[in-house]
């Protein structure tokens, strides 16, 4: 069972309180982009076995979206952070590095 903490309202709850929203930090491509970029933006998934950045919504709580860094292999949660960002903050990256040295996820490491 996943225990997540909502960074918006500070409430800690188990997974039924939240709803997963899939991969985070997706760079959007629209008109003017190449077919390749548009295809990857729409369909290609990281789906790693390990460190994963993803979006969650606190549906049975404050209703706000936020981000979570989590390990898909062990369900370990490295931390949650605001959705108002385009990349994971340094303290989250440090927390992951402490547990998973040498991790990589897309352009982040």
């Amino acid at each position: 069972m996943l225990i997540l903490e909502c960074p918006c309202c500070g409430v800690k709850g188990e997974e039924t309180e939240f709803h997963g929203g899939g991969e985070a930090h997706i760079k959007r491509f629209g008109p003017g982009s190449s077919e390749e970029e548009f295809h990857d933006y729409l369909f290609a998934k990281e789906n790693p076995r390990g460190v994963h950045f993803e979006r969650w919504r606190h549906v049975n709580g404050c209703g706000k979206w936020f981000h979570v860094a989590r390990c898909t292999r062990t369900l370990e949660v490295f931390g949650s952070y605001s959705a108002q960002t385009t990349e994971p903050p340094q303290e989250i990256r440090d927390a992951i590095t402490a547990r998973r040295p040498g991790w990589r996820w897309r352009e982040f490491s």
Binding site: A44, K45, E46, N47, R49, T72
Partner: peptide, 18 residues
């Protein structure tokens, strides 16, 4: 289940979530 892991070894991404 692990198709994404093998796809990464081959150097491409799949429209798949596990």
């Amino acid at each position: 289940g692990h198709s994404g892991v093998l796809a990464e070894m081959a150097g491409f991404r799949l429209p798949i979530e596990s």
